[in-house]
Amino acid sequence: MAAARTILALAVSLAAPALAQEQETPAPPMNKWSFAGPFGKYDRAQLQRGLKVYREVCQVCHGLKLVAFRTLADPGGPGFTIAQATAIAAEYQVKGEPDDQGEVKDRPGRLADVFPTPFPNDQAARARYNAVPPDLSVIAKARGYERGFPRWVGDIFTQYQEQGVDYLTALLHGYRDSPPAGVTLPPGNFYNEYFPGHAIAMPPPLTDKRVDYTDGAPMTVEQYAKDISAFLMWTAEPHLEARKRVGMQVFIFLIVLAGLLYFTKKKVWHEVELHPEKLKPRPPSEYPRA
């Protein structure tokens, strides 16, 4: 083992400077999320506020093409009633089906429809904004940041799965009015502390009091950023609550089963350890019983 230890020490010492040069973009601050951890659940009010932010700010440019209106009323989601979800759906115009004349007209959205995308295709988006605003359906899982060693090992035990939402939250209030000295941005770009490369095409979307909250939550950029991020976590992982609930049941079951198997194993092997001379292979019908 001495040789193994030497090799390990050598490798670590060689790697240390390499590790140090990795700090460019600051790691987003870790927030407290209601849905984190083994018993995590979405905060219904927060998801509803997040939807409001999405509808009043984000949806001008960003779609949610994988999210159906019906899911707004699903258990484990924002907790709207079916009537509320139907009403929200009806406020959108979606592409209808061909009528008898073969014409396709827009019609009000129904529960089975998904949130309409703001652009018919990427080219249309690029023509308008010189960039393609990504669809937000799974964005909370499609973004993250490098945790680095040894934090990623700890994440296995702490169940830290919120890199995506933490990054989104940080990004939304990570804008700086002007880039630091010596940094020039490409035209039409904005300086964001947390965006990889810092030059982001999206203008700062949130300002204080931009969205009216009626439930008393603070109308600040920070709160908006958290709410929309939590909402996007739900759109990305709509069955998170069911997953954690089933997980706990499976966990308890497996621990009970493993415990029983352990004692059964001890019983079965007990005889072997006491009476080695009785160890001949033989059919189970001939095993001695207590």
């Binding site: 083994p38 899982k141 296995i156 830290y160 799965q161 997953r243 997980g247 966990f251």
Partner: peptide, 9 residues
Amino acid sequence: AWFVFYIPN
């Protein structure tokens, strides 16, 4: 199960 239910990603 730990990975599947708690840290699937």
